[in-house]
Simulated scan of single mutants.
Amino acid sequence: MTLARSDAPAVYALHENPDWFSPFRDAFEAEDVPLVEWLLVDGVLDLDELPPEGVFWSRISASSHTRGHVRSKDYTRSVLSWLESHGRRTVNGRGVLELEMSKVAQLTALRAAGIDTPRTVAVIGTHNLPEAARSFPARSFPAPFVVKHNQGGKGISVRRFDSSAELADAVAAGELDEPEDGIALLQELLVAAEPTITRVEIVDGAFVYAVSADTARGGYQLCPADACAIDPVSGALLMPPGATIAPEPDQQLFRLREGFDHPLVDRYLDFTRRHGIEVAGIEFIETVDGRAVTYDVNTNTNYNAAVESVAPASGPGAIARFLGRELAAAYATV
């Protein structure tokens, strides 16, 4: 399948999961911004062909392989390299894609910016996890701790262990899947003062709003898109990994943090500007020992319908307006 083209300059959205895209499609229509979707699952890319005229917005997820789209990441790398070699305007482009694909890259960049992150050890090869875990006490990693994949999503790979011996038993029994890129993370277990995390939404260098997510019912699965809470086959509510209370129908796991004012917001805005991240949802935990610990940078951010209905501004709307402005600035005829 070749990539679709518009006869006139348009915004091209690079993604791999139609279940997540409806709110954006509606926002672009409402803002009257021309939109073409490139579903980067498989296809044909002619490197000798000129890209179409437009602005290209990447929202490929590190979790794409969990939906069977194992080629999407490398396909997107190729497409973005092709676009940028021709000088096309990309939003969350090639460099940002690499941050999305690696929690190691995110954590090291956050630490370099002076932002507190979880104490973490990267382990190449699942068989090395037990030995790495046994070194935790010397590294100020008291049990319990968590193991997660460097490339993950929706909490699928996250698992708590109460001792290095428990982890060793799990590895010996073959209970842990090999990470997509071969890198697993041993990470301190962050204990929240309240069973919530906060997600800060940023578009075009500006704070949009902050969301509180219920970790008792949401566990490690903190994707705010409504589709993330539903089993795609049965349509039933999912019991997320790490949840301690089963979610109930119509129960909201995500709430707007009204009047949110935290020093991290300005630090996140500076961080995203420095790294060329133009759309993001950044998550942190306020711990029992008084830390505010940032642990994830989502550059393919999704939005929750219930939060959007009461928020002072719309996340998808802000994106549609931002990309519409970029398109108008690049093409005088638009």
Rank of each mutant, 00 (worst) to 15 (best):
V203Y: 03
D204P: 01
D204L: 01
F207V: 10
Y209H: 15
T215N: 03
A216M: 06
L222N: 10
C223T: 14
P224Y: 04
A225V: 01
A225Y: 04
C228E: 07
A229F: 05
A229S: 11
I230D: 03
I230T: 15
P232Y: 02
V233K: 12
S234E: 04
G235I: 11
L238H: 07
P240N: 10
G242Y: 13
A243W: 09
T244M: 05
I245W: 01
A246Y: 06
P247V: 13
E248G: 01
E248A: 15
P249C: 13
P249K: 14
D250A: 15
Q251D: 13
Q252P: 00
F254Q: 03
L256N: 06
R257G: 00
G259H: 14
F260R: 09
F260T: 10
P263K: 14
L264E: 12
L269R: 08
F271I: 07
T272N: 11
G276Q: 10
I277C: 10
A280N: 07
I282V: 13
E283V: 02
F284P: 01
I285S: 01
T287F: 04
V288S: 10
D289H: 07
G290H: 03
R291A: 13
T299E: 04
T299A: 13
T301V: 14
E308S: 00
S309F: 00
V310D: 09
V310Q: 13
A311C: 01
P312A: 08
A313L: 04
A313Q: 09
S314N: 08
S314M: 09
